[in-house]
Amino acid sequence: METDLINLQYKRRFRRRLLLLLLLGVSVVVVFCVDIAVGPSLMELGEVFKTIFAPAAADLATRVIIWEVRLPYSVMALLVGAALSLAGLEMQTTLNNPMASPFTLGVSAAAALGAALAIVLSASIPGLDPKWAVAVNAFIFAFGSVMLLQFLSRLGGSGVEALVLLGIAMDFTFKALVGILQYVASAEALQQFVFWSLGSLTRSNWESITVLGSIIAVVMPFSIAASWQMTALRLGEDSARSYGINVRRLRFFSLVRVSLLTATAVAFVGTIGFVGLVGPHIAKLLIGEDHRFSLPAAVLSGALVMSLASIASKAISPGAILPVGVITSLIGVPIFVWLIYSRKKK
């Protein structure tokens, strides 16, 4: 083949992937707008956007509905989807396992254990305002679980397979401990915990949005900066190491990012499953495994799935809010299956 032709096609391919990212970004924006526009009070689209851009001109009820009900809910959906999906992709690459996600390797189970301790036993950091106890506990446990995972695997000095198995073992352990806590919980605390663990965006407020948004903004550049190394790691740990990549360091910092993203997201909205698994796969199926593209694509696809879930959780039964953790799976699975089959046909 002519070199010029390859060059041309390579450029075209590069542009096509950029375009795909752009399309994904546009879909996120469109779906987000739909998400904001959807609500039981059937507000006109014009009124919605007028209130967003000129809140002072709107009446109190409309202002509160847009700024305290719809926007925090929808923005949090975007951020949680982005954070969990990015965390999922990093985990799948660094642990070389397509089944890895914050929800299969015990991170979210650890968060649940922390939350359960706060809810059932009122156990948290001394001196902490009790209203933050659940979120702070969930964060500490999720973050701690990833650190523990690293520590244990380093003790064993063994490879990623051991890390994945340890993660699964920890997942079961944390779930068992949560079970024991549920056993000693009062009926009312149990109800509160179940509500927490179903995952809900109704808890979102601008404080939590700022925190999660900042975490993503801080972590993303480091993810992108590591993208070539991650791609090389995906092609085999031994060759990557022989090219001079410090794989242990790469893996460590990647898992630090994973734990920050997951712990913060789960602390605020509870355990929302599946998006951390399905988001990265959607990204990879669409755009391939060049991490320069797949990392941002995972961020966008996760945000997209959660935004769709957010719409569904409000629209299925207008006036009520269905637990978004449950909806995410219901929305994510069909997209996932469709992508797998449409790719097979190609």
Binding site: Y10, T231, A232, L235, Y243, I245, N246, G288, D290
Partner: peptide, 22 residues
Amino acid sequence: MVPQDVSLPVIDAVISALKASP
């Protein structure tokens, strides 16, 4: 052994060996 299931263009795989190396 090389992983068989990576959807990445051959040229990018080669580039990654250059770009990823410190």
